[in-house]
């Protein structure tokens, strides 16, 4: 099985889906001639031409609106927002147009738009370029939200997103672009809404996604050294998230730690823990522990920034608390 990077996996998914369906177009800032600011769209212009790979002005709202209008009329656009931070400029088009038009117009429109956006902190890019905005989109009915954590998932989920007839927010973690992993030839689209169990364990469940999945895996290694077998669940899809897999895991381990990079207030961990209490209260041997990003803006200074982002020792500590250690 070939080993490729997260970036290459995404690039392959775009190539394959554009070959498969000529309705797929790519648009965004610097996606064509420049090859994408993170080089995910490299080579697409030469292969598919400027009709299908479109450089746009710096106009995030109109990029999303253009994609929505084109989707309404039968295309399958894959707009890129250069980073998730710029999605703030497009929130009206994403949440107040794209997400609700099918519903508001009584099911008359189908909007197969996949908005790709890289996000996450850890690169000293300061407060305006380091956001984790997944909660904004998870909070919005009408959207599907995906966040792959590995090259194989990146490829399989992006293919699934493009083929899906609903609007999809496709989050990519900037810290993962160079991460390598095995990706099967002829990758098939993943099942949206299905979490993965990346490591099996009987003592505690660590639920993570996106850039936090590796943090959870690293924590599980450390816990194993201390004799604690952690199960690691990677959500992959944040909306609709896989309650069944999470609850089944909790029923096996009776302890759970949620790991998210975004701030904690009304966050992914809050959503997970509320559901776990509702659906599996009797299974719990300890309160749910949440590990999250700081409830703060990410500062520029390196050590201060790192203090805002969860690391493996934070997860280990939380897991040990659930075990009463």
């Amino acid at each position: 099985m070939p080993t490729i990077s997260y970036r290459e996996a995404l690039n392959q998914a775009l190539f394959e889906e554009m070959h498969r369906d000529e309705g797929v177009i790519v648009l965004g800032e610097d996606v064509a001639e420049y090859g994408g600011s993170f080089k995910v769209t490299r080579g697409l212009l030469d292969e598919f031409g400027e009709d299908r790979v479109i450089d746009t002005p710096i106009s995030e709202a109109a990029i999303v609106g253009m994609a929505t209008g084109a989707a309404m009329c039968g295309l399958r656009p894959v707009p890129e927002l250069m980073t998730v931070n710029f999605a703030y400029l497009a929130l009206d088009q994403i949440c107040n147009h794209l997400a609700l038009m099918r519903y508001m117009f009584g099911g008359q429109v189908t909007l197969p738009v996949t908005i790709r956006m890289p996000g996450g902190g850890g690169h000293q890019l300061a407060s305006q370029h380091s956001h984790s905005l997944e909660v904004f989109f998870v909070h919005t009915p009408g959207l599907i939200v995906l966040y792959p954590s590995s090259p194989a998932d990146a490829k399989a989920l992006l293919k699934a997103a493009i083929r899906d007839d609903n609007p999809v927010i496709f989050l990519e973690h900037e810290g993962l672009y160079n991460a390598e992993g095995e990706v099967p030839e002829g990758t098939e689209p993943a099942e949206i809404g299905r979490a993965g169990i990346l490591r099996q364990g009987k003592d505690v469940t660590l639920v993570a996604y996106g850039g936090m999945t590796n943090v959870a895996l690293e924590a599980a290694d450390t816990l194993a050294e201390e004799g604690c077998e952690a199960e690691v669940v990677d959500l992959r899809t944040l909306r609709p998230w896989d309650k069944e897999t999470v609850v089944e895991s909790v029923a096996r381990t009776h302890r759970v730690v949620t790991v998210e990079e975004c701030p904690p207030v009304c966050g992914i961990g809050a959503e997970l823990s509320a559901n776990i209490y509702e659906l599996a209260f009797d299974e719990l041997d300890a309160p749910v522990e949440r590990v999250s990003g700081a409830d703060c803006h990410l500062p520029y200074a390196k050590e201060l920034e790192q203090a805002c982002i969860p690391h493996a020792p934070d997860v280990v500590e939380a897991a040990l608390r659930t075990l009463g250690v």
Binding site: R52, I63, G65, G69, A70, A71, M72, L75
Partner: peptide, 16 residues
């Protein structure tokens, strides 16, 4: 003005 970029996209589909 929310519909203005939607018009752009619809027109793009025509041109395409």
């Amino acid at each position: 003005a929310g519909m203005c970029p939607l018009a752009v996209g619809a027109a793009k589909s025509i041109q395409y």
